[in-house]
Design a protein around this nucleic acid. Sequence first.
DNA 1: ACTCCTTTGCGTTATTCTTACACAACTATT
DNA 2: AATAGTTGTGTAAGAATAACGCAAAGGAGT
Lengths: 211, 211
Amino acid sequence: MIECQIEVFLNIFTVDDDKIKILLLKKEGSSTWHLPSRLLKIDESLESSATKICNKFQLKADMLKECHTFSEVNRNKERRTIAVSYMLMINKYSLKNYEFEYQLFDINNIPKMAFDHGSIIAQAVACLKKELLNLNNLKVFFPADFTFPELQKVYEEVLNENIDRRNFRKKFLPFVYETGEKNELPSGGRPAKLYRFLDKDLERNLFNVIK
Amino acid sequence: MIECQIEVFLNIFTVDDDKIKILLLKKEGSSTWHLPSRLLKIDESLESSATKICNKFQLKADMLKECHTFSEVNRNKERRTIAVSYMLMINKYSLKNYEFEYQLFDINNIPKMAFDHGSIIAQAVACLKKELLNLNNLKVFFPADFTFPELQKVYEEVLNENIDRRNFRKKFLPFVYETGEKNELPSGGRPAKLYRFLDKDLERNLFNVIK
DNA sequence: ACTCCTTTGCGTTATTCTTACACAACTATT
DNA sequence: AATAGTTGTGTAAGAATAACGCAAAGGAGT
């Protein structure tokens, strides 16, 4: 029997401007950034606590995934605190209630974080990259019209290697359809066609890797 | 700030008699089986607590993997109890201190378990199967001489499908070498050659699946 | 209009991997 | 010696992958 507090952290990931981003919060008066979090109450489970964070942003909590627990004895000097970290993949359009103190950050450009939030994010990012190898999860990031170059950039970041543009297209073609529309803001270069994912369920790894 | 107890569970998996097995404990006077476990103390982390369970069996704790937390409010009626589940893959020869009240069970034939230990095992087994797709993890189960039929049986259970014997062999041949010895107890049929894994590191998925 | 530059779309080829088999080799049993 | 059960080896068709060349569509500058 121990007396402690249990923190629940939520890593909210999305794709914005061709980059994988995470939602962070700057608390008033603090110089560092924070992950959205909540203290577990005696009458709730970790999952329901994480769900309440989702509710705050009006996000569906049905794809919540537990990442890791952080329990080093001294991670909080004042009192024994154990943290459980969750992640959620969303598309950026589903982010409501997105107030001024919240901001999306490129996962490769995380600002100075409070306490050990930086390592919690690092762990969650590793977890995210595994999940994104499953096409069913990747779909969450691209619910509406997307172009092949956009999709490829995310995959290249996940796999951490460059992929041939033409071979990449061939791999994904069986799972998408053209909308007929084209990209609007090319800033030079040929406009890209817009695609959407088909509804088929796909439990297949398109790239033969395990991470 | 809540007062609760935190349980650490350890799912110890091994391969024995061509089956994936888990180490369970029957406590004196109890009619049900238990997972090896430990209550978290105020001055230790979850990892170090799980390591202490490993020590009891003289098992190296360097491959401990966190599986899941179980935090339903009523999972223990008497007091608020949160469980964190770990898993460890070992080869059966490394199991010392293996006393009479402990027993290995086929993961497809789990006995009647105490409390929610059954669902903790189910979750850990799912976790294990993912891990075994990584050949580096599979090696732990087959440290010494093994035959192709033995290896294949484990893979068929993980993938939950039958694999062609000859194609399976071709896939794994680049990663093993013959010892020159042959299987001793064939009970009829041609004796199988014995193999060992090469030392190469392999972060590749030999079967194109995500689970 | 024309050229240059950039980006996207499409196709071709050689190579590798996968799949589905047939058949021989080895052992124990009868 | 014949049979049954199991393992080892080969081969050929088909699919997937990797490495390219090149055309098409737009913007910017002249």
